[in-house]
């Protein structure tokens, strides 16, 4: 038997864990070895001191000190927890029974929300379509409404190439013409010299009458290109008048320069333009 095994038997003997036979064996070994006996006595002394430790007692009742906390709402006693556990199944049953009602209500709300959403989406689409459709129509309407005042784009391009580069300012032709009349005295002699053959006046009056009346009401000399360049361009309001003036001026120049051939060609162009303008007027009337 080793010293470690003897030491373990000593410890077990202090705890009363040895049988009677083991005790006799241990005591016989201790009688033979004084060192083992000394160790055993020391251990037994420690064990006796531990057994004789004074029983300490709290200076006040700990239960009484914690009773307010235990009885407070925060402290849930175990018994109440058990009662709650017993109640839980009934709560689950109630929850199950109430769940269909809530689910029906929820479904109804879902249906309402879905219908509202779908109607809103449809309304948005319809409004969008109306706006997009009306935008095209509006463009057409604007074009047609302004057709009386504005010449169509191809004519503008033609006039730009034909006439002088400077565009005429605005539709208020009377004012512009009056202003021109006020400025005319300095240039009137030039125009008097170059223009006013009777045939040209007749042809111009015949050509311009159906198109633009203000120009027809003023048979005086048409605006010179130089003055037109000085005026700021006012697109698209005065576009219709400009081609006529440009055509008039160009026609006059042509008359002065080329003669009857150019007159006939430009008269054809003017007729085409008139036809286009008439078409536009018809569209406006429609």
């Amino acid at each position: 038997m080793t010293n470690d095994e003897i030491w373990e038997w000593m410890q077990r003997d202090l705890d009363g864990d040895l049988s009677s036979g083991e005790k006799q064996t241990l005591y016989s070994l201790l009688q033979k070895d004084s060192d083992l006996q000394l160790m055993y006595n020391r251990l037994k002394n420690v064990s006796e001191q531990l057994e004789q430790l004074p029983p300490v007692v709290p200076s006040f009742s700990i239960v009484d000190s914690i009773l307010p906390r235990l009885e407070s709402a925060a402290a849930m006693p175990a018994a109440k927890l058990i009662q709650n556990e017993e109640i839980l199944p009934t709560l689950e049953v109630k929850h199950k029974s109430s769940s269909p009602v809530t689910s029906k209500k929820w479904k109804r709300t879902k249906v309402w929300l879905a219908s509202i959403g779908s109607t809103a989406a449809a309304a948005c689409i319809m409004i969008g379509l109306l706006f997009t459709g009306s935008d095209g129509k509006n463009h057409e309407i604007i074009d047609s409404s302004q057709g009386a005042m504005i010449a169509p784009p191809p004519i503008v391009e033609n006039t730009a190439f034909i006439g002088p580069p400077a565009p005429t300012p605005s539709t208020n032709t009377s004012q512009s013409i009056n202003a021109e009349d006020e400025k005319k005295p300095a240039k009137q002699p030039v125009k008097k010299q170059s223009s006013k053959p009777p045939a040209n006046q007749v042809t111009q009056k015949q050509d311009t009458k159906p198109i633009v009346k203000p120009t027809d009401n003023k048979p005086k000399a048409p605006p010179t290109p130089v003055r037109q360049e000085e005026k700021p361009p006012a697109f698209p309001i005065g576009l219709k008048d400009n081609p006529d003036r440009e055509e008039k001026t160009s026609a006059k120049d042509d008359k002065e320069n080329d003669g009857d051939k150019s007159k006939s060609n430009k008269n054809k162009d003017k007729k085409d333009k008139k036809d286009d303008d008439d078409d536009d007027d018809d569209d406006d009337n429609d």
């Binding site: 029983p55 300490v56 007692v57 709290p58 700990i62 239960v63 009773l67 175990a78 018994a79 058990i82």
Partner: peptide, 23 residues
């Protein structure tokens, strides 16, 4: 009794173990 919800039994049980717990 304490487990069944008897508050007095629960307090008495706590009093019975109070000293050993403190020791």
């Amino acid at each position: 009794m304490a487990q069944s919800g008897d508050q007095d039994a629960l307090v008495e049980l706590l009093r019975s173990i109070e000293t050993s717990v403190y020791r």
